[in-house]
Computed example of a mutant assay.
Amino acid sequence: MKNLKFLIWGALFIAIQSFAQLKPVQYKDGNQILNGFEISPVKKNSQKPGILILPAWRGIDKLSKDTAESLSKLGYYAFIADIYGEGNYPKDNGEAGKIAGFYKKNFEAYQKRISLALEQLIAAGAHPDNIVVIGYCFGGTGALEAARGHLNVKGVVSFHGGLGKDVLRPTEPITAKILVCHGADDPYEPIEEITSFQKEMRDTKADWQMIYYANAVHSFTNPESGTDNSKGAAYNELAAKRSFEHLKIFLNEVLKK
């Protein structure tokens, strides 16, 4: 009987140890209240690798939370950034487009919100010199802005994100390694913008890679996007799985762990 109790308590202890939970974190940009989420790695190590997650244009969603939990199981600290802040969360796609458009145009404000979220990731336990930024859609644009803004990150990953920048902005050297995961049939990313992005990468002599996924359109990682490619945004299970595997390869290469 005692042995049985010992086994039960031992199994319970292991289960608790192997489960990490997302915790809400309130922080600020001046007077603007921001509400993010942090999660610690299931198994910690001395290198303390961290991943900052930038959500899509509707703000923090199930995909960003699920991703944070998956990364925790792989041994990473993770933090989900709140770019918009209290009182500014979009109620629909129309509002989301307007608010996201503001940050795309005012990229320095976007970079500042990303920097503040990086501070929270570090406060959660990640090493300041061992961080990667990843983002989805609008967040993918933000990941590239983290690289363009010379934030202290080892690499950035954009999933079906906007790739362009204002042609009047100067092209500066990029030191962060870059991975772009792109739907081959994404109708929302013009070929001109893709060409311009690739030229930017070559001109800056960046360490970059861009992977195209067949039969995938915009938002291919998000199960909540439906599966109708004709709508321009749809989930593609195979592309989602492949892109996550490519993310893991990138993280293993870029971060100390």
Rank of each mutant, 00 (worst) to 15 (best):
S243F: 08
A100I: 07
L74N: 13
P90V: 05
R169G: 09
F250I: 02
P90C: 04
T171K: 14
H160C: 03
K165F: 10
Y212E: 10
I131E: 00
G94Q: 13
L54M: 09
I60T: 00
P41K: 02
N152I: 03
K2R: 13
N3S: 12
C181Q: 15
L251M: 06
N3T: 12
I53H: 01
F250T: 00
E95G: 02
I174K: 01
E200H: 08
P41M: 06
H246A: 10
E245A: 15
I131Q: 00
E193W: 10
M201C: 04
L63R: 06
G30S: 08
K248M: 13
L116P: 03
Y89A: 07
G155P: 02
G149L: 04
E192R: 12
K256L: 11
S46Q: 13
S18W: 10
P173S: 09
K43C: 03
G161I: 05
A81F: 04
I83D: 00
S196R: 15
L4F: 15
R148N: 06
A184F: 07
K256H: 12
K98R: 14
Q17W: 10
T67S: 10
E86I: 11
P49Q: 01
A56G: 14
S40T: 14
Y136R: 06
I51G: 00
E108Q: 13
Q32W: 01
V254G: 00
L144F: 08
E108T: 14
E224H: 11
K256P: 01
I51W: 00
N236P: 04
N3E: 12
A176K: 02
R148Y: 06
G50H: 03
Y136T: 05
V217N: 02
E38H: 13
V217D: 01
V42K: 06
P223G: 03
C137S: 15
S70C: 05
F159V: 01
E192W: 08
G85Q: 03
L168M: 11
Q111M: 10
Y110Q: 13
K165V: 14
Y27E: 01
F250M: 06
E189Y: 11
Y77Q: 00
G140H: 06
S40I: 10
G161S: 04
W208P: 00
V167A: 15
I39H: 03
Y212T: 06
Q17D: 10
A78N: 02
P90Y: 07
N45V: 07
D185E: 15
I14E: 02
K73I: 05
G59C: 04
C137V: 07
A81H: 02
I122V: 14
A147T: 06
L247H: 07
Q32V: 12
A124K: 09
Q198Y: 09
K112H: 11
S225L: 06
G142Y: 05
T175P: 06
E189Q: 15
D186K: 05
N88P: 01
K257M: 10
P173K: 12
K43W: 10
L179F: 07
I14G: 03
I33D: 12
K43V: 14
A239D: 05
G97W: 09
R202C: 07
G226E: 05
I8V: 15
K5D: 14
K62L: 11
C181K: 09
E119Q: 14
Q209T: 11
